[in-house]
Design a binder for these strands. Structure first.
Lengths: 340, 340
DNA sequence: CATCACTGTGTGACCGGTCCCACCATCTCA
DNA sequence: TGAGATGGTGGGACCGGTCACACAGTGATG
């Protein structure tokens, strides 16, 4: 019988007894130390197999001071979170990247202020080795608190001015906004509007700036009536599009700073009888999935989610191992579909 | 200074010293025992605040044998997982439901066989208090292994024949398939096709059976050429729709067993020049988000994700506390949009 | 042949909690 | 007034690992 007599899980001592070695040796085998003789190694591995041993996570964590897990911290309100496939893309990527290091991801959401206090308290308690923060907003209370508590943290996005204090990984939003706008220009648009992300998020600001730079470089007007603000959500995009249609009815292209907003814009344009792409070109941002479900299919800037995830994990592990902060910016690529 | 002299985190002993009580008393306060005098309670709470104490998860878990976290186990291949918003909906719901009990969710994916072995080994090691299994397929090696290891497990979906061995929570797929088909019939369709889910998943089978029952009840033909099999994905839905168009070109309605497949079907119908809903009605299943991004907006059966999540958590906590298995079936509701 | 470096192994202390039992006060009631 | 119940508290053992250190055995070196 491989199993322990009575529901009791086998411990490292049981393994040691079966293998005829000491606990220390078993521990060394478990942790891949090279200071183990081939015979001992074989004996221990066999014993582990026969009694069906699996290490106790809590005990290991307590003794070693490392938990082999990191938190994936989401600070947006819940309803946004799971409408937006961006988050699950990142989460999936991070889970995979962590698995390569035998680490796990624990999901922590902190949408309300009360949640935040609890979350910070928990995370500051070193229950996880580090935090992958997906926040959008920098310098908010959460990142400050984590910083103050000295918890290794990597944030998704780029937050100017915090480079020295925080590791960050983000897509090149500025260049992405520029590329998409240049694409719209190249398709012949001359009255190009934009639906921005939230103006308190660096990503939203930078995508807008990219748009403005491209227009200026092409000698096109950067008119205030061509800019409407959204919140990355579909509903926000729809509202902003309605706004644009009244303020600048002659617009011939729209750059939405997220695919969800572009979806909202598409539906409003359709209601208003504007054809896409014949009357109005529409470009989005993210390419996390929805861009391939719309009609017409949505031209968008693809964020390299897999690379963002793996870089976040890489930088976090580096920070956990004592390295300093680093900032990584990854390029976005234009994915042209039917909407332009 | 609230913080400990030198990076050392305060322990329960520090709290005890500051409060002038014993470790036992602090532990009692922490765990909400009522056997504590008001003075001691106040002193401990104050001490906790002043030195900024937060309990060590690993130590607590080791001593108490409970981890206050459960695993969210996904066994589908990675690419499917994060294309399908269903999963993140469930995950979000479970996270929230667990938070009410001060518990956390750890994400474990096991797409490849190697992952599976590792995952089972980990989960069987009681590192989490229980497992929320999102699998689609029952009786697969994972659920068997978890069962054998005695890990409290609740699976999402309904698996006939396993009621006594496993807790499960699922939408009423049979009734959902029936309702949608009845709806298509009520809209005047008479050659109703279906794109099924995978035939090795109970959910897929039951939605198909609901479709068949409704047709039979209405005296309509249940013809084999009207049934094409998909895999819940968009690409699978597109392929199945192409198949249907050649085998049964006169079809006037399609029930797709997932919204993603419906999206694939919509694009194929569009390419083929069939108008929706004028020429062909299309109905989906899930309503996890995409149904509101399509053109036309997709009529679908809504799964009560929040209730599914909270029921899964409720049953899992019950199992952890020693209760037996239970099966919960939740109703789906028709959400009528423009595609019918 | 004594010394020394080096490899492999065993052992005890420790991580930070929980839990149980012993114990002291105080209060109740015969 | 003394026995017994009750409420609150302290402290030791323990959870299952890791880690530093001690030490035995081996081979190389002077």
């Amino acid at each position: 019988m491989p199993h322990h007599p009575d529901g009791e899980r086998p411990t490292i001592r049981d393994v040691a007894a079966v293998a005829g070695v000491s606990r220390g040796t078993v521990s060394r085998v478990l942790n891949g130390s090279d200071r183990v003789s081939p015979q001992a190694l074989a004996a221990v591995q066999k014993a582990i197999k026969t009694i069906g041993y699996s290490a106790n996570h809590a005990a290991r964590s307590l003794a070693s001071g490392r938990s082999n897990s990191v938190a994936f911290l989401l600070t947006e309100p819940q309803h946004l979170l799971f409408e937006d496939p961006t988050f699950s893309r990142l989460m999936g990527g991070c889970t995979q990247a962590l698995a390569l290091h035998e680490m796990l991801l624990t999901l922590v959401t902190a949408g309300t202020p009360a949640d935040r206090a609890r979350a910070v308290n928990y995370l500051a308690g070193r229950h996880v080795d580090g935090v992958l923060l997906v926040s959008g907003r920098a310098g908010n209370s959460i990142s400050e608190d984590l910083l103050a508590a000295g918890v290794p943290t990597v944030v998704c996005g780029r937050f100017p001015g915090l480079e020295s204090r925080l590791s960050m990984v983000g897509a090149d939003d500025l260049d992405g906004g520029r590329q998409m706008t240049e694409h719209l220009i190249s398709r012949g648009a001359i009255r190009i509007a934009t639906i921005t992300g939230p103006m308190d998020m660096p990503g939203g600001i930078q995508r807008l700036e990219g748009y403005q730079h491209a227009l200026a470089a092409a000698g096109l007007p950067v008119a205030p009536e061509l800019i409407s603000h959204g919140d990355y959500s579909k509903a926000g995009g729809a509202a902003a599009m309605r706004d644009l249609l009244t303020r600048a009815p002659d617009t011939d292209a729209v750059f939405a700073a997220s695919d969800l907003m572009a979806v909202g814009a598409l539906s409003v344009l359709r209601e208003a009888g504007r054809r896409v792409p014949e009357d109005v070109l529409v470009g989005g941002f993210d390419d996390a999935g929805v861009a391939e479900t719309t009609e017409p299919l949505l031209t968008t800037m693809r964020q390299p989610f897999d690379r963002i995830s793996s870089e976040m994990v890489r930088l976090l592990l580096a920070r956990i191992n004592g390295d300093g902060n680093a900032t990584v910016t990854l390029p976005t690529t234009l994915v042209r579909r039917s909407s332009t």
